[in-house]
Nucleic acid binder design. Structure first.
Lengths: 193, 193, 193, 193
DNA sequence: CATGAATGAGACTTCATTCAT
DNA sequence: CATGAATGAAGTCTCATTCAT
C-alpha cells in the first residue's frame, strides 16, 4: 500500500528553482525589507510561478526564514596568522566590505523592525549570522596575549563601530585604513600613553 | 505658537491634535515599523479621524517625517562635570537606558530598512537624533586631556557597542556597570599595560 | 473633545447602496450558493466598489448574514377569511409560487450545505423566514374546528410537500390545483371514507 | 469487472482505490458541500495522490458525479408485510434514521445549491436516490385498499415532512413515534371523524 | 500506473488616498 | 475645520488542472 520508500516517486523538486527563489528573496529583502517584499516579486525574479513558491514554503514568513537561514558566513575567511592585531584588521575590513557590498544594514534593519511581528527573523540572524561572525573576531582576539577586557565587549565595539558609523552616515572609502584605526583604538585605547 | 486657550475663534484644539497625531505615529512606528503602521491606527490612537491626519500631512511619508523630526534629544541631559570618564559613563548609561525604554532599535531598524523607498527618514534621524546625540558624547570626550584617537571613532565605538550588543542579543541588566566597562575599554584599551 | 453626538458628522452612508448590495448578495446567493458568490460579483452587480462592501460588513459571512436577515416574509399576505381549508390553499399556493419565482430551493440548499462552516446562515433562515412562514400556516390551520393532529406536523407536511416535489423533480404547472390537492390530502387523509 | 485478485498482472489495487476515492468524495461532499471539497482532501482521505484521482476522472465534477452515482439505496430494506400502514411506518422511520445518520440534508443541500453550475448532480440524485426511495414508499402504499389520493402526493408529504422538520429545526428523538404520527396523519387526515 | 512538481486564475481582505457633507 | 464614505490598487494564499519522472 505504501509506495516504495527507497525511491522518490514522482517528479523531483528542482534544486535550481529552490536556490533561485531563496536568492531572489534575500535580494528583495535586503532592498526593500520584509513587508514591501511581495511574493509576486520573488516569483518573477526567480523565474517561477507564485504557486511554486507556496508549494515549498507555506507562508511568506517561512520563505523569508528559509532565505535568512540559507545565508552563509565564513566562506573565504582568511586563516589566522598568529598576529592578533593584523588578523583583527583583516577580518574587520572584510566584514565591513561585505556589509557594504550586500547592503547588509538594510537587511539588519528589517530584522530589527520586524522584531514585533516576526521575532524569528532576528533570532535566525543571531543564530546563523551574528554568532558565527562574532566567533571569527573572538578567535582572532584570543591570540592576543595580555588581554584585560571582556572579549565580547571588544567584539561588540569592533562590530558596533561599523553600525554606528553607518547609522551616522559617516562614509569611509578605505576600509582597510578604517579597520586599522578601529582595531588600534580598541586594543590600545583612546588615551596617549 | 500655541493658540490662545481663552479664545474660541481661530483653530481650537489644533495644536493638541497635532501633538497627539505625531506621538501616536512615533509610537506605532516604533512598535511596528513604517509599512505596518496604518493611518487608521494612527487616527484611532490619536483620537481623530483619518481625514484630519491627511488634512495636515499630505501623505503618509510626510506624516512619518514630521513625527521623526519632532523627536527631541537632549532633554534632561546631565551637565558636564569636568571629569570626562565620569561624564561619558553617565551619558552612555543614559543613552542605553533611553533606547531600552523606547525600544529605539526598532525605530532605527525601520529607518534602515526603508532607506530604499524613503531615504528621508534615515536622513532625518541623522539630522535630528544621531547628530545631537553624538555631539553630547563628543562634548564629554573633549574634556579629556591627552586624547590620541579620532573622537568620532571613539563616539562610534561607544554608541556602536550598544547596537552590536542588541543585535547579538546580549542583554545587560545594569546599564551603569555596562557603561563603565565600555568607557574604560575605549579610553584604556583592551590590553594590560 | 467628543464631536456633537446629536448630529452625524461627515458624509452619511448611502441607503441606496446598502439596499443594492444586499439585494445583489441575495440574488447571487440564490443563483450560485455561498462559496461561489464572490465579493467582486456582489460589488459589480450593486454598482459599488468592493471596498464599499467591506466598509459596511467586515467579512463575507457578515454580508451574507445581513442579506438573509433583510429578507422579509409576510408582505402581501392575504387576510384570513375564517375558512381554514380555503385559507390554507391560498397560503400554500402563494408559498409555492414565491419559492418558484425566487428559486428559493437553491438558497435553502446553500444554507443546508453550509451548515458545517456557517451554521448561522441556517439559523438565520429559521428565525427570519421559516418561523414566520410556518406561523402563517398555523394561524390558518387553527381556524379549523375538530383538528385532531399536531398542527406542527400538518404544517411540516404541507410545506414539505413542496420540498419533496422539488427534490424529486415533480413539476407542477398550476400551483392552485396543486395546493388544493395537498390541503385536501392533509385535512381529509388519503383513504376513502 | 473486478480484477482477478489472484494475479499480479493487470492493474492491482485499482478497484480498492476506486472505492476509497469515491467513499472519501461522498463523505467530504456531505460534510462540506461541492465547492469546499478539494481534490487534495479527497486524495489525502483516500490515501492516494491527487494525480491518481485525475487519472480516473477527468474533472472534479466527473468525480463527484461518480460518487453520487455509486450511492446505493435499498440495501437492507425490510420486506413488505401486507399491512400498508405498518410498512409505511417502518420504511419512513428507516428513511429518517438513515438521513439523520449520514447527514443527508447537507448532501441534498449541496445538490440543490449547485443546480445552476452542475445540474447533473441533482439529476443524478433524482435518478439514483430519490427515485428508488420513492418507489419503496409507493410500493408499500399500493397495498392499501381504498386509496383515494394521488400516491405521489402522499409520498411527497411523507418524505417532505422530514425535510420540512429538518429545515425548521424541529428535532425528533424517537424516529418510530414520529413515523407513526406522520403516517397516521397522511392516511387518516388531520380532522376528527 | 502512480506520484509529486508546477502553474494560472481567482478569492478575500487591507490600505493610502480622494470625495461629499 | 473636521468627519466619515468611497475607492483602486495590491497582497497573501487556495485550488483544479497539467507536466515530468
Amino acid at each position: 500500500m505504501t509506495p516504495n520508500p527507497g525511491r522518490q516517486a514522482g517528479r523531483p523538486r528542482s534544486a535550481e528553482k529552490r536556490e533561485a527563489i531563496l536568492a531572489a528573496t534575500l535580494a528583495l529583502l535586503t532592498a526593500q525589507g520584509y513587508v514591501r517584499t511581495t511574493l509576486d516579486q520573488v516569483a518573477a525574479r526567480a523565474g517561477v510561478s507564485k504557486s511554486t513558491v507556496h508549494l515549498r514554503w507555506k507562508t511568506k514568513a517561512d520563505l523569508v526564514s528559509a532565505a535568512l537561514a540559507a545565508q552563509r558566513v565564513g566562506d573565504h575567511v582568511a586563516p589566522l596568522t598568529g598576529d592578533a592585531r593584523a588578523d583583527l584588521v583583516t577580518r574587520l575590513a572584510a566584514f565591513a566590505t561585505f556589509l557594504d557590498d550586500v547592503r547588509g544594514m538594510r537587511l539588519i534593519g528589517t530584522c530589527l523592525a520586524e522584531e514585533e511581528h516576526h521575532p524569528e527573523l532576528l533570532a535566525l540572524m543571531r543564530e546563523r549570522t551574528v554568532g558565527p561572525r562574532r566567533a571569527l573576531f573572538r578567535e582572532a582576539l584570543e591570540q592576543q596575549p595580555g588581554l584585560a577586557a571582556d572579549p565580547e565587549d571588544v567584539v561588540s565595539a569592533l562590530i558596533g563601530s561599523y553600525f554606528a558609523d553607518y547609522y551616522a552616515g559617516r562614509t569611509t572609502g578605505d576600509r582597510n585604513a578604517w579597520a586599522v584605526r578601529v582595531v588600534d583604538l580598541l586594543l590600545g585605547g583612546a588615551l596617549r600613553r
